[in-house]
Amino acid sequence: MDLDVDVDVRELLPQQGEFVMIDRLRYFDETTIVSSMTVVGDNIFVDGDVFTEPGIIENIAQTAAARMGYIGKYIDKSGVKLGFIGEIKNLFIERCPRTGEELTTRIEVTTEIFSTVMIQAKVNAGNDLIAHGSMKIAVIAS
């Protein structure tokens, strides 16, 4: 199943309010998901006009969680899940984006065993690759 339309991620994530760190779901298939987010000044991870490192990492984790949420809501109808970061490995941050920049985060699922998902992430701001690395997410029913 491909998804090239917009989905409001708040339907897909257990995180709420100011801790939601993606705006839209842009693409979905079995192993790939793409999210987008515009960095705004009142984001809790923005210092001055800089979107700081934890915000970038949370953006990656929530993109992976939105994939599980999408599956739970629209595909197997098992409901929205809680996702926890189990492991982060070889994650590099090239630069922190500024307010006004739009982030596009692409995640490829490399392994999925029961409720554990290994992903490879690339975060772009425009044409710049600003962060990349791998993460393991553990998922439980919420």
Binding site: G17, F19, P54, I57, F84, S142
Partner: peptide
Amino acid sequence: PIYRYHFPENPVTPGVCIIQ
């Protein structure tokens, strides 16, 4: 306030806040 949203009625220290 972070715990109001992460997660509602189920406070868990966000992994990224441990990094910070």
